[in-house]
Simulated assay, not measured.
Amino acid sequence: MTSELLDQALVEEATKKSGLIWVRGAGAPAARALWHVWHEGAACLVGDGPGEQPLPGLAEGATAEVTVRSKDKGGRLVTWTAKVVEPAPGSEAWESAVAELKGKRLNAPDGEAMTQRWARECRVLRLEPTGDLAPLPDGSLAEPPLPTPATTRRPIPAGLPRLLLKKRRRK
């Protein structure tokens, strides 16, 4: 019993303090980094809508593997199994999850109308811990990055350092 309580406390504290969790849904090729909020014993997510994070492989009633990293060092702390629950929009569970998520959503394009958009076009999910923890791996488990249209920055222009230093001297 003590071991179960310690495991539960580890999952809760680590997930609460981490800004991102890595989630692999059923059938997903790789885990994805997702922002979340810990609320009432579960990690709450919003996504699968315009302007929101994708939630591949996360279907109602399925299980997902959640990996939590250390906020200061970035290393893996714990990997736990979650049951995916999708509260109905407008339900009490949905409203309480959305109230927490709304405060943590950065750069929302529609401000206060965000919750109505989430109800219409997005999915709000709860990842509830089942109590199963995966053992820490021996290797790194590093995977190649997912394909993306993003590009790297180009080198800075040669004269830019002189321009920046000139402004500092004038002050």
Rank of each mutant, 00 (worst) to 15 (best):
Q116C: 01
G57D: 01
G159E: 15
P135K: 01
E65H: 08
E112C: 01
A62M: 13
S3D: 10
P54I: 01
L163R: 15
P144V: 04
L136P: 04
R168W: 12
P161F: 05
S70K: 03
K171A: 15
P89F: 13
G41C: 15
G90N: 05
E95K: 13
A26G: 05
R32F: 07
V84F: 10
Q116H: 02
A28S: 15
R123K: 09
A88I: 03
S96L: 02
V98T: 04
T79A: 04
P155D: 07
A31F: 05
A99P: 00
E95D: 07
Q116D: 03
P56M: 06
A88W: 00
M114F: 10
L146V: 11
R69Q: 12
V37G: 06
L34P: 06
G90S: 02
V46A: 09
G159Y: 13
A119S: 11
S18G: 11
A26W: 13
A64Y: 00
A88T: 15
T81Q: 03
L10Q: 05
K171D: 10
K83S: 10
S91F: 04
S3G: 05
T148E: 02
E4T: 13
A42V: 14
A62I: 12
P137A: 11
T152W: 09
S140Q: 06
A42T: 13
G57R: 07
K83E: 08
P129Q: 01
G57E: 00
E60C: 06
R24C: 08
G111D: 03
V23L: 10
E65S: 15
N107V: 02
A9S: 10
L45Y: 04
T2P: 02
L77D: 02
P50M: 13
V85Y: 09
C44V: 13
S3Q: 12
E92F: 01
P89H: 07
E13N: 12
P149H: 07
P145V: 11
L163F: 06
L5D: 03
S140N: 02
A64H: 03
